[in-house]
Amino acid sequence: MIRKTTEIDAVLLELNKSVDAHYKWLVKMFRCVVSSDVTQPDIMGDNAHFVCQFGQWLNHQPVEGNEDASYLSKINTAHEKMHVLGKELLAAIVDNRSQAWHFDSFQDALLEFTSSVMDYKLYLLNIRSNIDILTGLPGRRMLDESFDQQLREAEPLNLYILLLDIDRFKYVNDTYGHLVGDVVLRNLASNLLAWTRHDEVAYRYGGEEFIILIRTKTDDQACRAGLRLCHLIGRKKIPYPDGELNITVTAGITRAQPGETLDVVIGRADRAMYEGKQTGRNRCMFMDEQQKITLIETNDQMTLRVRA
């Protein structure tokens, strides 16, 4: 699940607060030992890990279809175990029946919890470091690192790469200035986030180039997705301080074959896009398995067709 930096930062904050909160929980346990008070619900209750504020936060995290699920599951298991063994240790101390294994088990549970939290934090920080600062989209490094796995996991669907390049972007920079150029890039990225569907992921690949990974069954469906995005971009006005701009993109799309590297697939998409640039811009081109390049277009009845 690709996140915005603000979402990642919010999760990291909760994880940091969770460690601080459980330091306080430990001190509270010491106080309970001194006072022999075993009535605290967040320590001695049957569901102390749910009463815990962090436990409530965990309980509200979406898991189904979430790439973070394995990390959250480990944290949840370790968190519950830590509370259960802490309760057992406290009860054993108060009843004057504590054994060395009570302390060892609780210590191991504490370390397991902090380790699971740290693993999740490192995972999120790695994602955050790979997000493009200007646009907020995942960047080239993230695509490079994840492509092989995404290609394998796409089955039984196919994986397609749609390479988009803003037409005459140099003219925008030269005419309106680089700050307006940055506005165009950020706006396009924001629109791509809004327009891409659950089986499509947008990346900023570099400069004015963006890549969309599309998971779908057929070439026809992939071409429809590419054409849809190109049309949406061309119809959307981009506001800037002195007015509005219209931009168009030229795109190349191709299917990734099993075992192919990212560079090979992008190479085909780039050649398809280059053909579109050479033949008029503002168009979406498809390269098939035989490396034949065709123009994707629709007729008045919105029936997809390709034209050599």
Rank of each mutant, 00 (worst) to 15 (best):
Y160E: 04
M273T: 01
R228D: 06
V117L: 12
F210N: 02
E153P: 00
G45D: 05
D182V: 15
R197T: 15
R305P: 00
H79G: 03
I43A: 02
M44S: 13
L110I: 15
L110G: 13
Y240R: 08
F54G: 04
R140K: 11
H22Q: 11
R281Q: 06
I214K: 02
R3N: 07
N173C: 04
F54I: 05
M302D: 14
D148Y: 12
A269T: 05
N299K: 14
I293F: 05
D132H: 05
T279M: 01
M44V: 06
V117C: 13
I43Y: 04
F113S: 10
W25D: 11
G276P: 09
N299C: 08
F147Y: 10
V84Y: 04
N16P: 00
L26M: 09
A69P: 03
G234E: 05
V172M: 01
N158Q: 11
L111Q: 06
A78L: 05
R307Q: 08
A256Q: 09
K28C: 15
F30L: 10
L162Y: 04
D20L: 11
Q291I: 04
Q291W: 03
P138W: 04
A109P: 09
N76W: 09
A194N: 15
M29C: 06
Y171F: 13
I2C: 07
I214Y: 06
E80Y: 11
L227P: 02
K277Y: 01
V33Y: 01
S73T: 15
Y240T: 04
Q278S: 10
I133E: 13
R281E: 02
D199I: 12
W195Q: 11
I8Q: 06
H231C: 05
T135C: 03
D199C: 10
V51Q: 00
S18F: 12
L26N: 07
L192N: 10
L193W: 09
G259K: 08
L185M: 15
D132L: 08
I131M: 04
P62A: 09
Q53P: 09
K28T: 14
V264L: 02
